[in-house]
Design a protein around this nucleic acid. Structure first.
Lengths: 346, 346
DNA sequence: TTCGTCAATGCAAGCGCTTACATTTTGCCG
DNA sequence: CGGCAAAATGTAAGCGCTTGCATTGACGAA
């Protein structure tokens, strides 16, 4: 019997396959098969092995497994933030859909920072992510170079750009924002403002701005007619931006917000300032996350297909990984949700 | 020159250390050192190696690295949900504190399900997590057995139980809930209700219930005086529970909620039902997440030290891993936050 | 010039697992 | 019972990386 060079199995430290095999009196190959394709092992052996696994509290070492098998069944997702619920429902759906196929999802957040996103991309890929779910198309060139080099399937959500070569599963931000801006204009508002997150490095924000402008231009208005405040992505910052806007000499009668989080901040601040919505000022959001329904008044906003994006992205990613498929972009619809926060101009 | 058995570096597939070493004309050891302890390598070599790394888009294979180095510098965190912001700020702080020490945080969610949590624990440990951050103490015995076997440092947050052997960094849920319930009673309310998430498998929820009862008992009331609705953990379910409560023959004048998410749902539903808060009914929350400030009226709730828990947990976990330290529980303070949702009994 | 020293580098043995291939066992048929 | 195919199991070669130890080469001192 050839001696195995492994250390003796110590109950208080992590057991290895070899430890299990020794206890069960079989080879490591048999243990491995027992775990990965039980049908190849005789029931009696299987039972013995499983008992050893249990006794030793054995759990496979993921790194070693990935190294040997060259697949991880792990996908990665990087979203700009996990501090609010904007991407939560979509991620949840993504995770559920992947779990059905036995795929684990690893999630990281980039804090709306392209460099941090690049780090996270490398991180997830190094950890063996077979495919990646990202938000938007706006990232560093080196991120794209890296992804390209490693041939990692990638799907971008929250955008839809058929002319881009990258595959996206999402919606047309510009069109959607134009829709809600047009609705605002239809309510007779003339003095308009937009609170947006930082647009540099965020294609969704830029497109939404453009969408708003599209609606204004259609009415013969120009960039000068839209007061823009660019700020961070938190509720608090939304509130601060709103307060700043309302303190100007000629405050807007309608404040459109780049997302529901900023809008919720604005509504909260309005209450604090004693400004009533929508009598004194109208406020609109974007995304239709749960908070939009909770605030008073409810937020008039753009509903985006959170769960649908997650599901379709999962399907696309799986196809791309399995079939080596190049992947195809999918456009999903958005729709206007009318609640109380948008009223006619005073 | 000894031939290396590796495949030729192909630009379109992931490069390995060996590929880099070949391109740079050095040994794999040098490349490895270049990446991990650059000071050991001469500047000229370093430069050459770095260029090769860059050209090839090389990124180390995490699994192989962990396998060889026997440390991952990765910690894991499992929270009950990522669909709302309850744990977000704490996780953020945890992540920041760990990042300062060069540690990566992997986050998973258990959907308030103990079995799923066990799966996630095994998952993260298999992936090489050196230490784990968990919520509460209520998990399957086999989870504890597993953790014990692998000697993984664990810190539980959101609870504080000095009598438990497990280390926790958090606060006394029972005391905190007693505090807010006492405040409700002090406002003259007699007909009370509690909306709570499922208590089985959730020690925080059970303790909060007990805390509420403590306050009632102190006034000579009994379990019969507290109408309890147990439901899920979403905003929607909070709203539904509230609606059910208000439709009873003798509706409560104060509805305490197990957390701010449920409370926000209740407030939203109140508006929908045309019930005014706090004139017709008072509502209280727990946790003091951002949403508590945004809803109308603002939520009277218990502020918990989100970021502090994250930071202290990080420190404890690091100490436990490095010094083999057993770890010590830390109690943090909560405080009552009075906003508009709690008023005097009608 | 000859050492000794030390910084820079290379060599090669694993880390824990999977899997192609080789070997043994089992069950059946003639 | 012998013989054979199929089932069960074992053997051993890596997967990509780190690191203890050996080797090389430069430089200053003797």
């Amino acid at each position: 019997m050839p001696k195995t060079p492994h250390r003796t199995p110590s109950p208080s430290s992590s057991a290895t396959l070899a430890d299990v095999s020794k206890v069960a009196g079989v080879s490591t190959a048999t243990v491995s098969r027992c775990l990965n394709s039980p049908s190849q092992v005789s029931p009696s052996t299987r039972e013995r092995v499983m008992k050893a696994v249990d006794d030793l509290g054995y759990a496979p070492n993921f790194g070693a497994q990935a190294l040997a098998a060259k697949r991880t069944n792990t996908f990665g997702a990087i979203v700009p933030t996990m501090e609010n619920a904007i991407f939560a429902r979509c991620l949840q759906a993504l995770q559920e859909a992947l779990a059905e196929q036995g795929i684990t999802l690893l999630v990281a957040s980039s804090s709306y920072d392209r460099d941090l996103e690049e780090t996270q991309i490398r991180n997830l890929v190094a950890r063996g992510a077979d495919a990646l779910f990202l938000i938007g198309h706006d990232r560093t060139p080196s991120s794209y170079r890296f992804l390209q080099q490693r041939q990692i399937p990638v799907v971008a959500a929250w955008v839809f750009e058929p002319q881009e070569p990258r595959v996206s599963v999402g919606f047309d931000n510009r069109k959607a924002m134009k829709m809600i801006a047009a609705e605002v204009l239809a309510h007779g508002h003339q003095r308009l403002a937009l609170i947006t997150g930082e647009r540099a490095g965020n294609d969704r924000a830029r497109q939404r701005y453009e969408g708003a402008m599209d609606a204004l231009r259609a009415k013969g208005m120009t960039a000068a007619d839209l007061q823009v405040v660019e700020t961070g992505y938190s509720i608090t910052q939304g509130g601060a931006a709103f307060s700043q806007l309302m303190q100007s000499a000629m405050p807007p009668t309608a404040v459109m917000c780049g997302n529901d989080v900023l809008a919720a901040g604005a509504i909260g601040m309005a209450r604090k300032l004693g400004i009533s919505v929508p009598q004194d000022v109208s406020i609109t959001g974007f995304d239709d996350i749960e908070i939009a329904e909770i605030v008073t008044p409810g937020l008039t906003t753009v509903h985006v297909p959170h769960r649908k994006m997650g599901r379709h992205a999962a399907a696309a990613l799986i196809a791309m990984r399995n079939e080596g498929d190049a992947g195809e972009s999918i456009e999903l619809e958005t729709r206007l949700v009318r609640r109380g926060s948008l009223g006619t101009a005073p």
